[in-house]
């Protein structure tokens, strides 16, 4: 087992890199005061609103928050169920 662990560990990035990535996300959420829970709420409400007008795939909806050097944005990725897929 320990032998296998060694390989597994090598594939994981060094912990300093993990710290940086975690901080990037935490700071983005802290600064905008947007919690992961709020993102879930937004996602549910977006699904409800859009699906009233357009058939969408609720499982595929992604609402993410990104922070760049100049601006922060909420990105909603909403896959639409096309006519072809509905027939198939």
């Amino acid at each position: 087992m320990r032998f296998l662990d060694r390989f597994r560990r090598r594939r994981q990035p060094p912990s300093g890199e993990i710290a940086r990535e975690r901080l990037r996300l935490v700071l983005a959420h802290d600064r905008a005061n947007i919690s992961p829970g709020l993102l879930d709420t937004l996602k549910d409400e977006i699904i409800a609103v859009i699906s009233r007008h357009v058939p969408i795939d609720p499982e595929g909806v992604r609402v993410t928050f990104t922070e760049g050097p100049r601006e922060s944005r909420l990105v909603a990725d909403i896959p639409i169920q096309t006519g072809r897929r509905r027939r198939g």
Binding site: P14, S15, G16, A19, R20, R24
Partner: peptide, 17 residues
């Protein structure tokens, strides 16, 4: 030493964040 082996954040990363 920890920064060198990747187990502590680089100071440049902290400044950038």
């Amino acid at each position: 030493e920890m920064v060198r082996r990747g187990d502590m954040m680089e100071t440049a990363a902290v400044v950038e964040l």
